[in-house]
Every structure is written in C-alpha cells, then in structure tokens.
Design a protein around this nucleic acid. Structure first.
Lengths: 189, 189
DNA sequence: GTCTATACAGTGATAGAC
DNA sequence: GTCTATCACTGTATAGAC
C-alpha cells in the first residue's frame, strides 16, 4: 500500500498524508504505529524481503534437479523478483533514501542482497562440486549475474509509461541470452 | 553545481533555495534563468551528455587499434563514465524524476543511452567485419555490456558512505572479469 | 539581471479528546 | 487505537524595487 506509493512517487514525493489516506487512516493514527517516515519506509522495504528469498531457497534445496537446471530456475526467479516484485523495483528508491539514512542501505544489503548472493553462490558451488561448473569469483559472478537484471529493472521503471516498453526491453529474450552467456562462461566442456 | 546537489540529495530533496545558495544567487534570480525546477534539472542532465559521448567517439574512429583493443578501451571509458561522471551516476535520479516528468526519460534515452549503444554496436560491428567477433544481438549486448556497470554505479552510490566501499565493489577487478566474460562470449576461436 | 519581501500550499510531527 | 485541530517549518513560485 505505502510501498506502492513510494514506488510511484519516490520517498520525498510521498507524503504521510497520502499514505494515511490510502490506508484509510488519518496521519495521527499512522504516527501511532510508526515513529516517523523513515521507520515506515524501512518497514515497507524489509516487509518484502522474506518471499523474495524463499523461492531461491527452495531451488537450492532441491535434490532432484541438476546444477544446470537449478541455474536456469534461479534465473527465472531472479528476473521475476527483481523486475516484478516491489522490493526488486525498490533499488533506485533505496539508493535515494540511503543518502539521508545509511542504515537503510545497510539493512537492504545485509538482509536482502547478501543472502541472495549467498544462495546463488551455493548453486554455483554445487555445480563446481559436481564437476560441471568452473569455479568463479563470487563478487564477479554477482556483478555479471545480478547486474544486468537490476539495470533492466531500472530501465523498465524509467520507461514504464512508454507504450513501446516491451519492444525495447523484452524480458524473455534478454533473460535467455543472459543465461546462455553465463553458461558459456562457467560450463565445463 | 546544482548537479552535485541533485546527486547528493535527490530531486525532491534538493530545494531551489539550496541551489541558489550554492550558486551564489538568490532564489528569485534562479527563477529568472529557469522557468521552474524541472527545467533546471533537465538542463543539468543534458549538460553532461556531450563529454561522456565524445571519448567513445574517438575510440570508434581510431584507425590504428584492433577491434579487441577498442573493446578494452570502450570498457575503460564506460566504467569511468558511468561510475565517476555526474551523468552516469544520475541514472537512479533520472528514474525518480521520470515518474513525474516522462520527457526527462525520453531525452535521456534519445540523447545519451541510444548514442552510447550505437557506438558500442559500431565497435562490435567493426570486429565482426574483421572476422574476429561473432555477431551478437544489439539489445542483448547492451544488456550484458552496460547492465553490470550501471548496477555497480548504483551500488556504489548506495554504499558511498560506507568505509568498505572499494572492498565490496572493487571496480578494477570487476571490470577486468567483465571484459574477460564478454570476450569469452564474442571472440572467435 | 539581481535583489528583498512575501504569498500560500503543503510538510512532518504532536497535543489532547474520545 | 483513532480522531480533530494545530504546530512550526519549508517548499515553489512571484511581485516589484533597483
């Protein structure tokens, strides 16, 4: 609710009055639940963490799938999460708020980014152990793996109101090409 | 000047009073030069376009260098531009402002993003013509080429105030690994 | 072209009744 | 736990003198 408003109008562009109205409350009631605007924002951000991580966790824990299948599933999940979910789309917003409130950045990193990276690293480690993936530096893999997805999400947010959005940023094709590129980089033989 | 303020505090977080003060003017004088805040912001953004493009243009026009050398030089330029220059760092800011003023996004795309992509595409086309690069889809290449760099810039903005910035986001290493990955993807033999 | 002064809407946040 | 009413303040923008 408040999350949607923040996404649409930014942090400074979303007033407590607007949030109260959208929540069917008055401002004063809102301030009964949250000490201030930052706390409310942080609640919005952390609220979205859980679900985004759980789908990756089930992929990692799957005993049936091969490392290559898991990699493909991780791509599906990450593209879906970063591009469609509220938390994923919030990156630029978090960057904006982080300037004034660095603890927002810290919490985002520790509770969202690092667990994500760790899960992706686990999938890659499973593949390396099975002898099908080359070992690769973890930071570099995050750079090449998550980088394009976040930028795609940012671009799509930026051009959300344009009617040729999907023509210029075709998620499916870009995802497929990206996956092939990563495979070319890490698959053995 | 105003650009730096926008970068530090976001669009809504930067007041006309603050800009006027930093410019050694009063608010009223500022409004003599710019009709409103958006116009001033657009002026800041477009102002940075020129230089950012010119360095890529000289690389493309170079008759001496091999396509592989040009690719490496383009990496140096893009990393430097996106991470260090004002325009490059402005992407999240432009995303913020674009929600309210879509023409900002359009101008950014047409005058900055598309020319950039076209120049990179030219380097790749030169390599393909010379028989050293495989042909590759233009949109995909932008996704894989520019995506990681923009996300790196965004991350570094987000964690700019943290003392372990360069440890977590080591530009040099990531750039080198990224270049190797792109080469693995497009180099023939 | 730059200034002082100001209009006026909206902001985050609080006091106190119910 | 929610309300009405209000606080002090800052925001964008403008009028009019010099």
């Amino acid at each position: 609710m408040a999350t949607d408003l923040f996404l649409q109008n930014g942090f400074a562009g979303t007033s407590m009055s607007a949030i109260a109205k959208a929540s069917g409350m008055t401002k004063a009631s809102l301030y009964y639940h949250f000490a201030n605007k930052e706390d409310l924002f942080i609640a919005c951000v952390t609220d979205g963490y859980q679900h985004a991580l759980s789908s990756l966790e089930t992929i990692v824990a799957d005993d049936q799938a091969s490392p290559e299948e898991k990699l493909s599933q991780a791509f599906d999940t990450l593209y879906d999460t970063v591009i469609n979910s509220a938390v994923g789309r919030m990156s630029p917003l978090i960057a904006e708020v982080s300037r004034a409130f660095p603890q927002v950045a810290r919490s985002f990193r520790e509770e969202y980014i690092l667990p994500h990276e760790a899960l992706v690293a686990q999938i890659l480690a499973q593949g390396t152990k099975a002898g099908v993936f080359k070992p690769i530096d973890k930071k570099l893999m995050s750079h090449l793996f998550i980088g394009p997805i976040v930028t795609l999400s940012l671009s799509r947010e930026m051009f959300a109101k344009f009617d040729d959005l999907d023509e210029h940023f075709p998620v499916g094709e870009l995802k497929a090409g990206h996956l092939e590129a990563i495979k070319a980089l890490i698959l053995i033989n």
